[in-house]
């Protein structure tokens, strides 16, 4: 078995890779959380709108509130990457 030598380049490259993984996790997991939150609100919102069209604006607002979570994830990812 070859013994792997940890050079500076290897260390730097793997650090970069870990940053990329971290960025991916930040967006992915935040996206999942948003999806879970929006799933419930969205279902209820569509139902409520079917009953009364006038509240579309209000339920749209309620539905998009969890979107902030994924935006935070995206911001963190962008800050990590650049």
């Amino acid at each position: 078995m070859a013994v792997e030598v940890m050079t500076l380049e290897v260390a730097e490259a793997s650090a970069k890779g870990l940053v990329a993984i971290g960025a991916g996790l930040a967006v992915g997991m935040a996206g999942l959380a948003t999806a879970i939150a929006q799933y419930g609100i969205g279902t209820a919102a569509v139902g409520a709108t079917a009953e009364n069209k006038d509240i579309f604006g209000l339920v749209l607002v309620l539905t998009v509130i969890p979107e902030t979570i994924v935006i935070f994830g995206l911001v963190v990812a962008l800050l990590l990457l650049f």
């Binding site: 979107e67 902030t68 935006i71 935070f72 995206l74 911001v75 962008l78």
Partner: peptide, 16 residues
């Protein structure tokens, strides 16, 4: 804080 940072979407969505 959360509402102010929510505007960060302007940059984030654009870059994506």
């Amino acid at each position: 804080i959360s509402h102010t940072l929510s505007y960060a979407r302007l940059a984030a969505v654009g870059i994506s």
